[in-house]
């Protein structure tokens, strides 16, 4: 491989390229290829039998619905948080802004046991709902709470910079023309931040689909009810049925790649528009 064109005069190509390719091959390509290898060993019929098993299907359903609900919740609260942080000045704003990344900094296992302690029947929050017969921990609601927690930063941090750079003169024009604040938001601001919001939603959804650490503590892990797909992979690996684990994982991988592809399309579309303007 050789560098082409004008840029080639900058030294260091061989060394940096060699290092990059070696690292990517050893740590990404070869390990990922082992999935393909294992899948071919399993064969198509084995694959289909595994992923259409009732318990696995139920696991997918729990994972997808809970991840979707969490990503949706974060769209709402993430947009609100981004709006409040960009548009208003109030005491404690810097603290709120600084706390947003907490879910990335806090180990997921710690988040898992903390949320379980909070939302169990005897916990600070769970005990408020328990008298009404509402169970949060050890039910799907608990999974959604855990997934919402770990994905909080995505929507806030994708929408926030777009809101910050939004040209206020359009909103001003809308106000002068007599539009109400709600109308200005939905007709002027919202279309501008939609790509960022979709990107944040996609990132949160993808992360929530694969999340393991924070969920296993709060979920209760009951087959068909609160057992997520990553946990199924885990238990199949612990039982040394590597082929079945690979089959379950392949579907999850396919889903992640579809989401990543959609995010790329949304971003390409958005930057295409920006280029036209």
């Amino acid at each position: 491989m050789r560098a082409r064109g004008k840029k080639a005069i900058i030294p260091g190509f061989g060394c940096s390229m060699g290092l990059t390719v070696a690292f990517v091959s050893l740590l990404i390509l070869i390990p990922m290829a082992s999935i393909v290898l294992e899948a071919t060993r399993l064969g198509l019929s084995g694959f289909v039998r595994t992923v259409t098993d009732a318990r696995v299907l139920a696991g997918y359903r729990v994972s997808f619905t809970c991840a979707f609900a969490a990503a949706l919740l974060n769209c709402f609260f993430g947009l609100l948080l981004a709006w409040v942080l960009v548009r208003y000045r109030f005491p404690g704003r810097r603290l709120m802004d600084g706390l947003i990344e907490l879910p990335f900094a806090l180990p997921t296992a710690v988040a898992g046991i903390a949320l379980t302690a909070l939302y169990s029947d005897k916990g600070w929050i769970g005990s408020l709902f328990a008298p009404a017969g509402i169970k949060i921990a050890y039910a799907q609601a608990g999974i959604i709470i855990a997934l919402t927690f770990v994905t909080i930063p995505f929507v806030v941090r994708t929408v926030q910079p777009v809101l910050e750079q939004l040209d206020k003169s359009y909103e001003e024009a809308g106000r002068i023309l007599g539009a109400s604040k709600t109308r200005i938001f939905f007709r002027i601001v919202f279309p501008e931040i939609t790509p960022a919001l979709l990107t944040g939603f996609g990132l949160a959804f993808a992360r929530a689909l694969g999340e393991y650490g924070s969920v296993v503590f709060i979920a209760g892990n009951m087959p068909f009810k609160t057992e997520i797909a990553p946990l199924l992979i885990m238990s199949k690996l612990e039982g040394f049925s590597y082929g079945e684990a690979t089959a379950v994982a392949l579907v999850m991988l396919a889903a992640s790649f579809v989401i990543m592809f959609c995010i790329n399309r949304v971003q390409a579309h958005a930057s295409g528009f920006a280029g036209e303007l």
Binding site: M32, G213, I233, M260
Partner: peptide
Amino acid sequence: TLIDIPFAVSPVIAGMIFILT
């Protein structure tokens, strides 16, 4: 694209590929 793969993969799958390898 290859560099971004680890972000698209569930942590459990990330562990699994090393068990398989």
